[in-house]
Design a protein around this nucleic acid. Structure first.
Lengths: 278, 278
DNA sequence: CGGGATCGATAACCTCGGGGCATGGACGGG
DNA sequence: CCCGTCCATGCCCCGAGGTTATCGATCCCG
């Protein structure tokens, strides 16, 4: 019942929760198994809750253990974020980290950054190419990110829209449907369609297009991405796929003036955004 | 550098950041001042960042220190939430805590709870009366809350609407405007209007109405609140105050089936909600 | 059915770091 | 100029957290 849980305890617990094996988890943490056993036991005593059911052959999470596993992940992310953001803020030359997928800016980023640099609160922007941009915001690897609504999970984030655009299918030039002016989703019924965010996420646009060129998949992407393809690929507008919005996103609790300035720059440079109600 | 920050370090740092005085902060933490000084110094060494500028007469936060103060609060809230939610989940008889302001349910809660109890994932609901319901969600004191959009800060929360309703002004029966059928905000221009969320938050509806009865203020409240007033008070519809929506809210990262069931119950019992786009 | 392998818990020991007390040193005020 | 305030430093102690050795339970297999 006394003091708060310590970060180390949570991290150790989480290691066990993740591979359900004390010895392996201990090895992963670089400590001996008995120490880990004790830490977890103490955690259980402090919480007054059983987190694991252990038999000598198997370890399983209790319902309370599952709750803690999920909450501990958030908490540790928050602690990591605190450290990373503080280090960044205190760095000799502080900067802002913007996470995006390469090619995922619809060509608007340059203009936004140009506007941004005029702001008195601006500081240098470092671009981080990364697939899991939302995760990067949560754990402090990034201060802002370019994301798509409907494809990314925006909960816990504040956003500013840059552009709403319809989607297009990307096909090999040799594909029977490649000559069409437009397609609807039903046309792709039989094709192995790849949609961002369906778990088979490609690490980069290049990888994705490679797969398309090989005939392994068909991609559904925002229309701006489908412009300027390699010559062996064709982008065809999709009429019935709901449009997606490209957004600048940042943690809802952010207090950084530099992030606020970046949001202002987006608002100024991108008239596409819906004005917020008054 | 090396390992993560410990929660104790963050808590100690935060104490200093809050009153900018090592000795007082140490007293508040129940430890001696030298220990606190050292903890903070170590934290600075680990982060490689200066958090305070100290003269022997004053202590001030650096910009990086301000960042850490804000991030540390979030992180500590998350750690506390982890402990509280885990304890609740592991309690002999687990339950769900719903935070609300007394009278802030527009009379819908009973029906929602009745629906909820039929759900297989349901568990007993404990109601927590509290002004800062969003804070209660963040630090784990509550699992869900009844909040109002436009009055509460909903960032980081998932929500399900119960009811959208216009607002009304509450006046003393003797007030010159009390006889009117409706009012607009301009009519109240000269009155000392109290709006929820403007910092002079009343601890309870009763307190607020007390102030109105005393002629100290005029209240703007959702219309359902203005029904059934004491005889010396009058509610008058406001024509131009934007309507507010009463929402069930819960942390965006929640994975609790009981909370999900409660959201379902709201959806079932309150046809007022906008269906989310598909 | 018995022996070995696996895996978590326990026990005994050690080390280090956080906390306490006493004191030093810088600075401002009367 | 001396005193009071306030943070930093030095030194000691204790407990938390780590290590190795070992036990006990369980399953696999011959």
């Amino acid at each position: 019942m006394d003091g708060s849980l310590e970060t180390r305890e949570l991290a150790h617990f989480l290691a066990v929760a993740e591979d359900l094996h004390f010895s392996r988890a201990a090895a992963r943490l670089g400590i001996a198994q008995p120490a880990l056993s004790r830490t977890v036991r103490r955690l259980e005593r402090r919480l007054g809750v059983t987190l694991f059911v252990r038999t000598s052959r198997a370890v399983a999470l209790t319902p309370a253990g599952r709750v803690l596993a999920s909450e501990a992940r958030r908490a540790l992310d928050a602690v990591d974020a605190a450290a990373r953001r503080t280090r960044r803020a205190g760095a000799a030359e502080p900067h802002l980290v913007l996470a995006m997928k390469a090619g995922g800016d619809a060509g608007l980023l340059a203009a936004v950054l140009a506007t941004y640099e005029g702001d008195p609160d601006a500081c240098p922007v470092r671009v981080l190419f990364r697939t899991d941009r939302v995760g990067a915001l949560r754990d402090g690897h990034a201060d802002a990110a370019l994301v798509f609504d409907r494809l990314d999970d925006l909960r816990g984030l504040d956003t500013e829209p840059l552009l709403t655009e319809p989607r297009a299918a990307v096909l090999p030039a040799s594909h029977p449907l490649a000559a069409r002016d437009s397609l609807c989703l039903a046309d792709l019924r039989d094709a192995p369609v790849h949609r961002p965010g369906d778990g088979t996420e490609a690490a980069s646009l290049t990888e994705l297009l490679q797969l398309v060129a090989l005939g392994r998949t068909v991609a559904v992407v925002p229309r701006s991405v489908a412009a300027g393809l390699r010559h062996d690929l064709v982008g065809v507008p999709l009429t019935d796929a709901p449009p997606v919005t490209l957004l600048l996103a940042w943690p809802a609790h952010s207090t950084s003036p530099a992030v606020a300035a970046l949001a202002r720059a987006v608002r100024a440079a991108c008239p596409g955004g819906d004005p917020v109600d008054a």
